[in-house]
């Protein structure tokens, strides 16, 4: 399974294997990653599952669609060039080794 690392605002790093087909938001909730809240339950309505993808890997994940792009303007910590909403990132084998910064608390 692809290995993913979350780097929390506190500095804590969590590395875990995530099954292909799961969203990174669901995985983070299961792991209790601080800063990933998913208030709307993955419906692309709240922008509280914000992650910043390692710029070197961002292109491999594809681009946010128009709805996600719109919601990314709402993130509390401020949008960065490789910001994503992790409810929209469904894990594929290409995600292996991905590092995500979680700017929220």
């Amino acid at each position: 399974m692809p290995r993913i690392t979350w780097i929390c605002a506190s500095g804590r790093e969590v590395e875990a294997e995530v099954a292909v087909g799961r969203t990174l938001m669901e995985a983070a909730r299961g792991l209790g990653i601080e800063g990933i809240h998913s208030e709307c339950g993955g419906n692309l309505a709240c922008a509280t599952c914000h992650v910043v993808v390692d710029p070197a890997r961002a292109a491999a994940l594809g681009s946010p669609d128009a709805m996600e792009d719109d919601m990314l303007d709402m993130v509390d910590a401020g949008r960065e060039p490789t910001s994503r909403l992790s409810c929209q990132l469904t894990v594929t084998p290409a995600f292996d080794g991905l590092r995500l910064t979680v700017p929220g608390v």
Partner: peptide, 18 residues
């Protein structure tokens, strides 16, 4: 339906309304 508002009352997002 998970319409979601910010703490200032503005709408943050609403699923599948596009």
């Amino acid at each position: 339906h998970a319409w979601t508002y910010s703490l200032d009352g503005s709408l943050r997002g609403a699923p599948a309304m596009e």
